[in-house]
Design a protein around this nucleic acid. Structure first.
Lengths: 249, 249
DNA sequence: TGACAGAGATTGGTAAGGCCAATTTGCTAG
DNA sequence: CTAGCAAATTGGCCTTACCAATCTCTGTCA
């Protein structure tokens, strides 16, 4: 692993970061000079420089040439949000709320080339449905991302992207989605078609409802799948008990 | 400015990153050694090391001690979402959509202690209004974050937090908000009161509307402020021209 | 009192060298 | 001829030492 060979600058950066978070150095304050820090931590100056660069990339400090390095944040701003693990149901609920609104905004602003792209993706989902689940899933993601892009709002785009990233990162969500597929639920072509139709008509309320309906159905399918899963687990448990009972007889 | 004093390691890191994105070095491949890169870019080895650390923190490369540095991604995965600069109006529009829904969800789930916290924050905003703008602004942020927390949905919470982080990070949004304050617009106590009232009644639709109304008014105020700002800029330009004309006469 | 110049401090970048880890290569033994 | 082991090579890691560029502050002079 990488844990045993932790690099020097990383340790220094962590110490410095915890010092900042703890309030040893407050926002706006200047850190000790590179030379001083080097002496304090008993390391060389380049190492300190590397640690400071690491903090700088985390938006914790700002270095002003010839003046010093100054604290600008007590904790990494975007770093933590991207790393949190979100449960599958939470994730879908959040998507229903956020992508629903995204869809409503998109309805007013989507252009023809984006509509064509959505139609193409829908076709892709339809044809590659049986062959390759990975491809159709990718098409699904791109479908939703095109809608986000159509809002022309980078805040919305970032939020939608964050949720999808969380989904691909979460092992729980991934295993659950494969489970759902295993129960024979086809990707929801008709629901996506309804979304596209509402977008074509520039119907904001209709588009919002179509998207919310789609994600609500996904949640329902997930609920049913977990039920099936629970049932299956119970059945196995019973079977195992029976076997054990038969063996001990 | 920071543009002219771009640090060396940043330029090298950018060149390297674009080289990776462009396919000069493919995923899994080893980069040239530190010594080689130093020669190629005509910089010293510490500088190369700093650039490599920057790439490493962006999850673009992985350095294996004693072996070399290897490409593991062609583009930063989560780093971009947190770093993008979002315009002030985009930001508020995104907040109106997302926090509106958050408010509707929160109405159904918020508990009494959270309602009390909101009331306390409202009070804080009211009393500290005249003394300290920083404090009342902080209370504003916490007000909205408590509502997000009340949804009990970490996806929503992360999205709301990301947008507020983007706001504090964006120099444009910050300067604009101070400008708005300079035009004498008080923090919107009554609008926040309306939100709290709807939440107290567990009225999801009412809460959504109250939040959307609040943020719509903020957008309007911002629009008006930018108008004033444009006017002021024009006035200054004219004054400068007049001065120059007078000087050259 | 105010503006300007210079000294001191601080970061930026470079050079060279010793050290440790991983890989590769070549030699030896079976 | 092959398998295994050891030495050499390669590569990153860290340090010391040095000079350059820049900012800040202070003292002086008008």
């Amino acid at each position: 692993m990488a844990a045993d060979t932790q690099r020097l600058y990383e340790r220094i950066a962590q110490k410095l970061a915890s010092g900042i978070a703890q309030g040893d150095y407050k926002v706006g304050q200047r850190l000790p000079s590179e030379r001083e820090l080097a002496q304090n931590f008993s390391v060389s100056r380049p190492t300190i420089r590397e640690a400071i660069i690491a903090l700088e990339l985390d938006r914790l400090v700002e270095v002003r040439v010839g003046s010093g390095v100054y604290v600008i944040n007590t904790e990494p701003p975007g770093g933590k949000a991207g790393a949190t693990d979100i449960g599958p149901f939470e994730l879908l609920e959040a998507r229903r709320s956020i992508e629903g609104e995204a869809c409503a905004l998109a309805a007013a602003r989507i252009d023809d080339s984006q509509l064509a792209e959505l139609a193409a993706l829908l076709n892709e989902m339809r044809t590659e449905n049986e062959h390759d689940v990975m491809l159709s899933e990718d098409a699904d993601r791109r479908f939703h991302e095109v809608i986000a892009a159509a809002t022309q709002n980078s805040g919305i785009i970032a939020a939608v992207k964050m949720l999808w990233d969380a989904r691909t990162r979460s092992p729980q969500s991934r295993s659950l989605s494969t489970k759902v597929r295993a129960t024979g639920v086809k990707p929801r072509i008709d629901e996506h078609t309804a979304i596209l139709k509402a977008l074509r008509q520039r119907d904001a309320d209709g588009a919002r409802e179509a998207m919310r309906d789609h994600l609500t159905r996904v949640i329902d399918a997930l609920l049913k799948a977990t039920e099936v899963q629970e049932l299956e687990r119970a059945r196995q448990q019973i079977a195992e008990q029976r076997k054990r009972y038969a063996a001990s007889k």
